[in-house]
Design a protein around this nucleic acid. Structure first.
Lengths: 344, 344
DNA sequence: ACCGGCTGGTTTTACGTATAACTGAAGCAG
DNA sequence: CTGCTTCAGTTATACGTAAAACCAGCCGGT
């Protein structure tokens, strides 16, 4: 042992130590040696490897195999709990397949992070992208990699597979819940984001209200996805001309939190004077008082399904197009419309 | 053009198309051709590369250079907003250096995700790890990679660099804030997590209270880091034997949210009957009513500093040990102790 | 005695890049 | 005209692994 202790041992070093050829080491470490190498030799190789602290060099393996066991997840921002949960699910599924997850981009959506995967053709096996990160898609496309789209228009071009949430159904559940409680004048706090998922919500809400005579979408206000913007939008919705809406449907729990603050500032009680609904079922939903009636998105499941779909595509299976159900969680922020006793 | 359109072009293909050698292509694409290749030839190479849609194969480059421009970030859970923010900062700094960020582990802390970096010596350049993910550290150490520790005991062994928050000072600011408001009987909702950062908080709180005659830590309750556990712990703290604490110091905003719910369940008003403080300054803090008095952690800055430190270490610079300041954000969840007029 | 097949390996090659070492031509001073 | 530089490239090699192709015994069947 000279000063070479600091050098990382290669499979050739292990071979030398075990008195076999490099190929044998590769066979044994690769695990596919059944019937090719004797039990004795394999043991010797493993011992030598452990002794030297040998780790296969993944860069070399990747080059040789043309596969990296790494997937890229493209989401707008991890500080949005929904996407953190998507990541969680994706990472879990990835771990099951022995795959790593690389994230893109510098996740506040800003930043010049194009670089990392501009030349990704070799470091990535595939990409999973949320439709809300659509601006990054142009860069992605030219990579020519398998692409799984999350929560996007089901008939997305260029996608090898898609995983969707039944967002429209979620909004229908919200609307029917409120209609069932006797509400007829609605306000909608819409996200100020141009994305399929939010267009779906608006459409589903309007469509459902149309099915009930007398029900109407009195006001629609848009807001950025933060509490303050939600509060301001809700103040506009609650103080505008004409009779005040008795129910405020919000495109996200964050906006709903803002709506609750607005209501209280205006001296209105939630839910007695105005019912408020959220969307997403963030942890925030149960931290508030009253707890939010909202729609739980199976975000982890989306991530898991996305990763599984990618693995399937990489294994040569046919593209899939899953759609996952969402469901209403009725809590304390909604109640009967006081001005209009339920039971119609 | 035959059916080979699907094959990814290599630098050799570009060389053939441009009528030069592969080495010249490498020179040009690598950008270090000043004085080695004529302007004309370089242009031809770039044209050919664009024509063919050439992307350098990163696996090959990594193998050749022994550097991957990829760092691993080890955090307990991205669904914890603090760590999502740490990631955000780290990713921003990484993007500036043209580096990718790989995340570990399957971030709920469970899962068998050991695999991805068990043999990471070649796919990673270095590791940034939060002390709260300490259980993963054993696996990391044997990799022999540069390691930057976040928010850990400053004198951590094996760390190439450390980035710390002055957590103790944060807690001191909380304590002094409440003492200044006249509070003397305190409750502490401590996180049920064995980690340096939480030990610091407990120690700093106790130490600071000791400096004021008459002040006392009446009760300490521990809770898992979620709203429900926080509520239950707070109920214990507020209903236990002896006089009720007038201020509840919580180890996190999430616990503080639980404490607010507990107070209201018990018919107590926040902050008039009991002051509540959080820690972290999550977005939750301003979504609640009243808004939480808390300590803002510069989590993005931690991530950025961690990545910068790692880059410095990789460039051969000396280990560093940064410590970042935190500061109190006084909001509506704390007020004067009604039973004891301020001004002593 | 000889062929075929099995066991347990070894030799060799290829993956795509970066770069050290080399080369041929031109320019130019002496 | 010779010898030294500089320019503008080319040739050759190494990075560490996986796996295809090869090979030496040995055993059993005919």
């Amino acid at each position: 042992m000279t000063d070479k202790v600091t050098e990382k041992p290669t499979s050739r070093d292990v071979a030398r130590a075990a008195g076999v050829s490099q190929a044998t080491v590769s066979l044994v470490m690769g695990g596919k040696w059944r019937g090719r190498v004797s039990e004795r030799t394999a043991g010797a190789v493993r011992d030598a490897a452990r002794e030297l602290g040998y780790r296969p060099n993944l860069a070399a393996r990747n080059l040789r195999l043309g596969r990296t066991r790494t997937a890229l997840l493209v989401v707008p921002a991890l500080t949005n709990e929904v996407f953190a949960r998507v990541y969680t699910g994706a990472a879990r599924a990835a771990a099951e397949h022995g795959v790593g997850v690389l994230l893109y981009p510098s996740p506040d959506g800003t930043g010049p992070a194009r670089d990392p995967f501009a030349s990704a053709r070799a470091t990535l096996d595939g990409i999973i992208a949320s439709s809300m990160a659509a601006d990054a898609l142009d860069d992605i496309r030219e990579g020519g990699l398998p692409l799984v789209m999350l929560d996007s228009d089901p008939k997305h071009p260029e996608a090898s597979a898609t995983v969707n949430l039944d967002i429209a159904d979620g909004m229908r559940q919200i609307a029917r819940h409120l209609l069932g409680l006797g509400h007829r004048r609605f306000g909608h706090l819409a996200a100020e984001v141009d994305s399929w998922t939010f267009r779906e919500r608006a459409r589903a809400l309007a469509d459902t209200l149309r099915t009930v005579p007398g029900a109407a979408l009195a006001r629609t206000e848009t807001a950025a996805l933060d509490v303050t913007a939600g509060r301001q939008a809700a103040e506009r919705a609650l103080t505008g001309p004409g009779p005040r809406p008795t129910a405020l449907v919000c495109d996200g729990d964050v906006l709903a939190a803002g709506a609750c603050k607005a209501a209280r500032r205006l001296g209105l009680r939630v839910p007695e004077d105005v019912s408020v609904t959220g969307f997403d079922d963030l942890s925030l939903a149960t931290a508030l008082e009253p707890e939010l009636t909202t729609v739980r998105l199976p975000a982890e499941a989306v991530g898991e399904a996305g990763m599984r779909a990618l693995m399937a595509v990489l294994d040569g299976h046919a593209p899939t197009a899953d759609a996952l159900p969402v469901h209403l969680v009725a809590r304390g922020s909604t109640t009967h419309n006081a001005a209009r006793p339920a039971g119609s």
